[in-house]
Simulated scan of single mutants.
Amino acid sequence: MATPTQKISDAGVSIWLDDLSRERLNNGSLEKLIEEKNVVGVTTNPSIFAAALSKGEAYAAQFKELAGTDLEEAVFAATTDDVRAACNLFISIYKSSQGVDGRVSIEVDPRLARNADETAVMAKKLAETVNRDNVMIKIPATVEGMAPITKTLAEGISVNVTLIFSLERYREVINAYMLGLEQALENGKDLSKIHSVASFFVSRVDSEIDARLDALGTEEAKALKGKAALANARLAYQVYEEEFSSERWERLEAAGAHKQRPLWASTGVKDPAYPDTLYTTELVAPNTVNTMPEATLDALAAHGEVTGDTVTGTYEESEEILNKIEQLGISYNEVVEKLENEGLEKFDASWEELLATVRTALEA
Rank of each mutant, 00 (worst) to 15 (best):
N341Y: 12
T280W: 02
E320K: 15
T79I: 14
E345Y: 04
L153K: 10
G343N: 05
A78T: 00
F90L: 15
Y274L: 15
D82S: 01
W249D: 04
F200E: 06
S207V: 10
Q238I: 03
M122I: 02
T44W: 00
V336D: 01
Y94A: 08
R204Y: 07
E242P: 03
R234A: 02
N115Q: 12
L185R: 10
N131S: 15
V135H: 14
T277N: 08
A349S: 14
T310C: 03
V289M: 07
N187L: 00
E326V: 02
R111I: 00
I330V: 10
V143E: 15
E319W: 13
A236Y: 09
S199G: 11
Y59R: 05
E72I: 13
K222R: 11
S9T: 15
A233L: 06
Y332F: 12
Y332T: 02
T150C: 11
L344Q: 12
R251H: 00
T129Q: 14
Y94T: 03
S105L: 06
V42W: 02
V173Y: 03
A229F: 02
V13N: 12
D348H: 12
A85M: 14
R22T: 11
A302E: 14
I164V: 13
E250Y: 01
E72L: 11
N333A: 09
T142W: 07
E250C: 01
E317Q: 15
S105T: 15
R111E: 08
G41S: 03
A176W: 04
A86F: 09
K55G: 08
G41F: 09
